[in-house]
Computed example of a mutant assay.
Amino acid sequence: MIRLPAPGARVVVRYLLPDGSATDALGMLLSADAETVVVDGKRGVVTIAVSAIVAAKPVPPAPERRVRE
């Protein structure tokens, strides 16, 4: 069983693609239920089937971008 924080937390979710390779979704957890997990990251909103998830964990907030002078 994968344990995720409450929606609104930043997470990384590793999941399997249909070809058997794995990829990660990194971003804000929008929702999670018994069937799907929804993550909003740089590549957009990703809906992931719970059955495809290999690992998931909360991660710290992204570092703030530095402004070059």
Rank of each mutant, 00 (worst) to 15 (best):
K57A: 12
P5R: 11
R65Q: 10
G41H: 08
P58S: 15
A55K: 11
L30M: 13
L4D: 06
L4Y: 06
A9V: 03
E64L: 12
P18E: 12
G20S: 05
P7L: 10
A55Y: 08
I2L: 15
V13A: 07
L29E: 07
L29M: 14
T23A: 14
E35I: 01
K57C: 02
A55Q: 13
V46M: 11
K42C: 10
V67D: 11
G8S: 09
V39H: 01
S31F: 10
V11I: 07
R3V: 09
E35Q: 13
S31Y: 08
I48L: 04
P60S: 05
D40L: 14
L29Y: 10
E69L: 02
V46H: 08
M28L: 13
P18Y: 03
E35K: 08
A6L: 02
L26I: 13
S31E: 14
V50H: 06
P7Y: 03
A49T: 10
I53V: 13
V46S: 11
P60H: 01
E35P: 00
I53P: 01
D40S: 15
G27T: 08
V11P: 01
A62E: 11
P61H: 05
G41N: 06
L4H: 08
P58D: 12
V54Y: 02
L26D: 10
L4P: 02
V59R: 08
A52Q: 12
R43S: 15
L29G: 05
P60F: 00
V13P: 02
A49F: 04
V37T: 14
G41I: 08
A22T: 10
P7D: 06
R65G: 07
M1D: 12
P60I: 00
T23D: 13
L26A: 08
V38F: 04
P60M: 01
P60D: 04
D19P: 00
P18G: 04
V50G: 03
A9E: 13
L4T: 05
S31A: 15
A52L: 05
V50E: 10
E35Y: 02
A25N: 09
P63G: 05
R43C: 04
V39C: 02
D33P: 02
S31N: 13
A56D: 04
D40N: 13
P58Q: 15
V59T: 12
V54N: 04
P58L: 07
K42V: 14
L16K: 14
V39S: 04
Y15M: 01
G8L: 06
L26Y: 03
